[in-house]
Simulated assay, not measured.
Amino acid sequence: MNTATVTQLKKELNNIDRIDLINIILRFSKFKKENKELLTYLLFESANEQEYIQDIKIEMDEAFKVINTTSYFYIKKSVRKILKSVKTYIRYSNVKETEIELLLYFCKKLRRMKPSVTKNQQLLNIFTRELKNIEKKTSTLHEDLQHDYTHLLENLKS
Rank of each mutant, 00 (worst) to 15 (best):
M1K: 13
M1I: 07
A4R: 04
K10C: 05
K10F: 13
K11A: 14
L13Q: 05
N15E: 13
D17H: 08
D17N: 15
D20L: 09
I24W: 03
I25T: 11
L26K: 08
R27E: 11
F28R: 05
S29L: 06
K32H: 09
K33A: 10
K33T: 12
K36G: 00
T40I: 08
T40D: 01
T40N: 13
L42K: 15
L43C: 11
N48Q: 04
Q50Y: 02
Q50R: 08
Q50G: 07
E51W: 01
Y52V: 02
I53F: 02
I58Q: 15
I58T: 10
I58F: 09
E59A: 08
E62T: 06
K65Q: 02
V66T: 13
I67G: 02
N68T: 11
T69Q: 00
T69V: 14
Y72Q: 01
F73N: 09
Y74K: 13
I75V: 12
K77M: 12
R80C: 04
L83F: 10
K84H: 03
K84G: 05
S85L: 01
Y89P: 01
Y92I: 09
Y92H: 12
S93A: 15
N94T: 02
V95H: 14
K96I: 12
E97R: 13
T98V: 15
E99V: 01
E99I: 03
L104K: 04
F106V: 11
K108D: 14
K109S: 14
R112N: 15
N120W: 05
N120M: 09
Q122W: 00
F127P: 03
T128A: 01
L131C: 04
L131D: 03
K132L: 14
N133V: 06
K136E: 13
S139R: 13
S139P: 02
T140M: 06
L141H: 04
L145N: 06
L145M: 14
L145G: 00
Q146P: 04
H147F: 15
Y149W: 06
T150A: 06
H151I: 08
L153C: 12
E154D: 15
E154V: 15
N155F: 02
K157T: 11
